[in-house]
Simulated assay, not measured.
Amino acid sequence: MNQSNEWMSLSFQNQEIIKKHQNDMPIKLGLLSKELGLIVKRATLPANISGEIKEQDGEVIIRVNRHDAQTRQRYTLAHEIAHFFLHRHLLSTGITDDVLYRSSQSDEIEAQANRLAADILMPIDIVKDLMHQHQKLKGENFYQAIADDLNVSVTALKIRLSKI
């Protein structure tokens, strides 16, 4: 399976908006957020909170914990963008995700956001191209080179590769 059910559930228009931002690596999440009309703020959040998304007065605001590693902040932003696409009906009360990307919402809602976040940050065709480009590297160097190209953590990449 190349893309998640969550990706397949997006409208063609939303898929095209995302794909437009997947032409350059790493994905420019700030530009994607801006096109979607999302307001992204890096904020000091409690140590156990990675991010949150809330709709207020007609605006959708995403806050990402500025104290997390950059790759973590990027994944959190992609995760919150996924909530925007998949769970818009829940945003008026807000969704706050802890460091394990768990919230007061169901585990399934968080799993859905994680799968779509992976589709946004690490498109399968691009991951496969990078695997080919770095095929001469061995062990952790192989994974690190691909993760660096995508600006994601090695852990996130390995989870993504386990789904191919």
Score class of each variant (00 low, 15 high):
62 I>A: 07
92 S>W: 11
55 E>I: 13
41 K>P: 03
108 E>P: 00
59 E>T: 02
113 A>M: 05
78 A>L: 12
91 L>W: 14
88 R>G: 08
108 E>V: 03
88 R>K: 15
111 A>D: 07
117 A>C: 14
111 A>P: 00
94 G>C: 11
59 E>L: 09
41 K>Y: 07
93 T>N: 11
100 L>W: 15
89 H>N: 14
114 N>R: 13
117 A>D: 06
47 A>D: 15
105 Q>E: 15
46 P>F: 01
97 D>W: 01
66 R>T: 07
65 N>Q: 04
51 G>S: 12
54 K>R: 05
53 I>W: 00
64 V>P: 09
53 I>F: 03
68 D>G: 02
91 L>K: 14
44 T>V: 09
71 T>S: 14
76 T>Q: 00
116 L>M: 04
47 A>P: 12
107 D>M: 13
104 S>G: 04
106 S>H: 06
45 L>N: 07
71 T>F: 14
45 L>V: 04
75 Y>V: 02
99 V>F: 01
88 R>L: 11
96 T>L: 14
94 G>K: 08
51 G>V: 09
67 H>L: 10
108 E>S: 02
105 Q>C: 14
116 L>R: 01
41 K>S: 13
81 I>M: 02
71 T>V: 15
110 E>T: 04
46 P>A: 13
85 F>V: 07
47 A>H: 14
107 D>I: 13
42 R>S: 05
104 S>I: 02
81 I>K: 02
109 I>E: 09
117 A>T: 04
105 Q>V: 11
103 S>R: 09
62 I>Y: 04
87 H>C: 13
104 S>L: 07
52 E>D: 01
86 L>S: 10
100 L>F: 15
78 A>Y: 04
65 N>E: 01
114 N>Q: 13
90 L>N: 11
106 S>E: 10
87 H>K: 09
71 T>K: 12
48 N>W: 08
94 G>I: 05
55 E>F: 10
101 Y>Q: 01
68 D>N: 10
104 S>M: 11
